[in-house]
Amino acid sequence: MQSTMPIGVFDSGIGGLTVFRSIVEKLPAYDYVYLGDNSRAPYGNRSFNTIHQYTWECVQWLFKQGCPLVILACNTASAKALRTIQQKDMIANYADKRVLGVIRPTAEVIGNYSQTKQIGVLGTTGTVQSESYLIEINKFFPDVKVHQQACPLWVPLIENGEYNKPGADYYVQMYLAQILAQAPDIDTLLLACTHYPLLQDKIQQHLPTGIKVVTQGDIVAESLSGYLTRHTEIEQNITRTGTRHFYTTSDDTQDFDKHASMFFASEVKSEYTSLR
Results as ranks from 00 to 15, higher is better:
74 C>H: 06
88 K>G: 07
77 A>H: 03
65 Q>T: 15
67 C>D: 00
66 G>K: 10
100 L>D: 09
96 D>M: 04
71 I>P: 01
72 L>Q: 08
78 S>A: 07
68 P>M: 13
66 G>N: 11
116 T>W: 12
104 R>I: 13
116 T>A: 12
91 I>T: 08
113 Y>S: 12
70 V>D: 10
69 L>F: 05
72 L>D: 08
85 I>T: 10
79 A>Y: 06
62 L>Y: 13
116 T>K: 13
79 A>T: 07
67 C>W: 02
107 A>P: 06
89 D>R: 01
101 G>M: 03
104 R>Q: 10
56 W>T: 12
62 L>D: 13
115 Q>C: 13
102 V>A: 08
61 W>R: 11
88 K>L: 10
60 Q>S: 09
85 I>A: 03
116 T>Y: 10
97 K>T: 01
64 K>L: 12
62 L>V: 06
99 V>C: 03
85 I>K: 02
107 A>Y: 07
116 T>R: 12
108 E>Q: 14
63 F>D: 06
85 I>H: 02
82 L>C: 02
58 C>Q: 05
94 Y>V: 05
113 Y>F: 14
96 D>L: 03
59 V>C: 13
58 C>E: 04
73 A>D: 06
112 N>T: 14
92 A>G: 15
93 N>K: 09
60 Q>T: 10
70 V>Q: 12
89 D>G: 01
110 I>G: 06
85 I>F: 03
105 P>S: 03
87 Q>Y: 07
116 T>E: 10
67 C>S: 02
61 W>A: 12
112 N>W: 15
93 N>M: 05
116 T>P: 09
83 R>L: 15
83 R>M: 14
84 T>F: 09
112 N>L: 15
69 L>W: 03
62 L>N: 14
64 K>P: 06
86 Q>A: 11
95 A>K: 15
86 Q>G: 11
64 K>F: 09
90 M>Q: 03
113 Y>A: 09
89 D>F: 01
108 E>V: 14
97 K>I: 00
115 Q>M: 15
88 K>Y: 08
78 S>G: 07
73 A>E: 06
86 Q>D: 10
81 A>L: 10
99 V>T: 03
90 M>I: 01
109 V>H: 02
67 C>T: 00
84 T>V: 13
77 A>W: 04
55 T>P: 01
88 K>V: 04
61 W>V: 08
80 K>E: 15
93 N>G: 08
116 T>D: 09
